[in-house]
Write a protein that binds this DNA or RNA. Structure first.
Lengths: 132, 132
DNA sequence: CCGCATCCTACCGGATACTG
DNA sequence: CAGTATCCGGTAGGATGCGG
């Protein structure tokens, strides 16, 4: 009774029809659980610069340091610190600190984050098509 | 010299590699324009309940009224009012007011919004796979 | 030096009451 | 019914400080 309807793999660009069918195939409890998970995700992404931070990682080909992201996005350090902590706590980023001088901290996207990158990609395509 | 590299059509689930290649094919000016458009989109989506509102429309099969969304999401009316105005101003929703009593206002997603629905769909799939 | 914590200010979002 | 007015708590932004 665990997850008989578990989605086998993550297909990028899931059409709404497919997801709508998925939602309707779930019973009340499973569906509430799914909605809650999505709500958590939306709450996370629905904060200042969260999507932008993800985008920076999506286009980077190496681990990123605090200063890298700060310079790229130009956000206040405390805000960036909060976002990075949240993303790390949710298992989207992995934080590795090296005990050096000067100190070095590197952030790496986890597979969980990589699985979200198509969202970023789609937003870029959308912007290229529908921008003013 | 207008848009020789215009993306022909919106493919759902654009891989980051493809978008990365696109970004690198653009010259400085075009790329800055794209980044600005994406930034605008991220700023819009990065507000409270914006993604949730989009999701409600993505799964609805008819125009929605203010009270529908309010009841579904349980958000404060002033916040919802602001979000709906922003989405309407950005051309994602079309607002139609009927001069009746009691008054009736319907919101319909535009093609521009429909083109964003795969983002919602992907988030649902992601949540089903990676949720706690 | 770099990554963050603190302090303070401004604005945004939540709850409730109220109007056309 | 579809919002607006009002009040208030929380969160983001900017500058600065400090610990490693």
């Amino acid at each position: 009774m665990d997850e008989p309807r578990e989605i086998p793999d993550l297909e990028p660009g899931a059409s709404i029809e497919a997801v709508r069918a998925l939602r309707e195939s779930l019973d009340r409890e499973e569906r509430a659980s799914l909605e809650a998970s999505v709500e958590t995700l939306f709450d996370l992404l629905g904060r200042a610069h969260a999507l932008s931070v993800l985008a920076v990682f999506a286009f980077a080909d190496r681990p990123l340091r605090f200063g890298d992201i700060e310079a790229t996005l130009g956000v206040a350090p405390n805000t960036l610190s909060t976002r990075l902590s949240e993303l790390t706590d949710c298992g989207l980023l992995e934080r590795r600190a090296y005990d050096e001088s000067p100190p070095r901290v590197e952030y790496t996207p986890t597979p969980k984050a990589v699985a979200l990158f198509p969202v970023i990609g789609h937003c870029y395509r959308w912007a290229a098509d529908y921008a003013p």
